[in-house]
Amino acid sequence: MQRTLVTVLRRLALAVGLVLAVLAVNFTLIHAAPGDPALVIAGEMGGADEATMATIRKTYGLDRPLHEQFFTYLGKSVRGDLGTSYTYNRPVIDLILGRLGPTVLLVLTALLCAIVIGTGLGVLASRRPDSFGSGVVTVFSLVGYAMPVFWTGILLVILFGKVWPVMPIAGMRDVRAFGAGPWQAALDVAHHLVLPAATLAIVYLAQYSRLSRASMLEVLGSDYIRTARAKGLSDAVVTFKHALRNALMPIVTIAGLQFGNLISGAVLVETVFSWPGLGTLALDAILGRDYPTLLGVLTFSAILVIVANLITDLSYRWIDPRLRGR
């Protein structure tokens, strides 16, 4: 128990260091990029002479040495001040916090569906690896894996928006549902969530079903599974208690590693379905050259990925007791 606590604290400290490193890289990148912020601001003002330029530089601290600027940026970031958006003219942190919820909702829903359904299909396929059902899962997985996210999204939009219009194809809430009770609102959001989450889930679902099938096949051939059967345990107990837990390792690894991909996938899905998340915010920021917002989104995405990896690391220890001593 104490060991686990120490590990958690050590991993947390590492995670904080990693976030600082991300801030540093982001800062360096933006300064390595061509263009002078003072010129941009002067351009927005409609032009300025040398003296005004100097004032601008002084006001924004741009006349300071780079390392000093970095520490100012770092200090402000740590206090939650990520600057002001050029496009929306609002604090970046408010913009991001407003968009974080929808993105986390979308990504976690998709991830959960992909893991649960994908693993379930993989387990089913592994029980009779030569059967017709197993072949269907394999074909389905390969097709799902081969389809680009945005294309799947557009297909679903056509299917459920035009051919069979039963699902909302854009946004997160129905204007007509504003002012309704909390249950109504939650249902409304869930209804809007179906298509984007399904789009994002399909690709990953395919990967998890392939992976869990292979992993289960390996585990089902191991000696301790024979022991479990020799004990008189039922097929279900052998599969789900004895085999699945050991087959989970690679699935959890991939889930953790792919969290970053999932977020970049969310950018595409949010764009296709006009989902008001970090992805659409990032796209707007890129198109509008809104650097503070873009930096903020990058920082938050990095934090999400780091948190996901932390959770992955800790679940290893839950799954495999051999790792608990380390």
Binding site: S222, D223, Y224, R226, T227, A228, R229, A230, K231, G232, L233, S234, H242, R245, N246, I319, D320, P321, R322
Partner: peptide, 25 residues
Amino acid sequence: MRQVRGNRVSMIFQEPMTSLNPAYT
């Protein structure tokens, strides 16, 4: 058959290192 296995007839195997499930006590 399951009521016979492990109950009336039990078995031990060649490989003690891998015959126990690593995930459970």
